[in-house]
Amino acid sequence: MPINSNKEYQNYVDKKSPNSPIFKNCFNAFWVGGLICVIGQLIFDYCIYRGFSKDLASSLVSISLIFISAFLTALNLFNRIGKFAGAGSLIPITGFANSIISPAMEYKSEGYVMGVGTKMFTVAGPVLVYGISTSVIVGIIYLIFNTQAILLV
């Protein structure tokens, strides 16, 4: 019986605890995530069709998807999609937007400055910190080894 050591108990608990339905979760994540990317691609194609540059089109894709995400979050629908799709709605930029918007709504009761303003980045803050810091390091390394060898393109 697993009462003796903490490690044995942990192993026993792992065996006892039901696992997440990983195949179902992966399937849902796949098609929802894929679908969000397809919607992005359609917006991108439309922007190109209207004669925008590629960079501008990319920005417009981000803005549109973030808007859709904000809209669904404000209607209290995004968490249901997230519960169903898991990483499928988390990994696309919609999930990033949702992680900024949801604490903003949550902490509204603490006021607009110290609540909404401060808590907005409780979940997404690390993403910006690590993303931007990594990009600075990438830039500095690129500056030092400014050769085609490091940049394969």
Partner: peptide, 12 residues
């Protein structure tokens, strides 16, 4: 896009 989400789902 779907495959990138599956990888994250497995991690979760």
């Amino acid at each position: 896009g779907g495959v990138l989400c599956i990888l994250a789902q497995i991690l979760i």
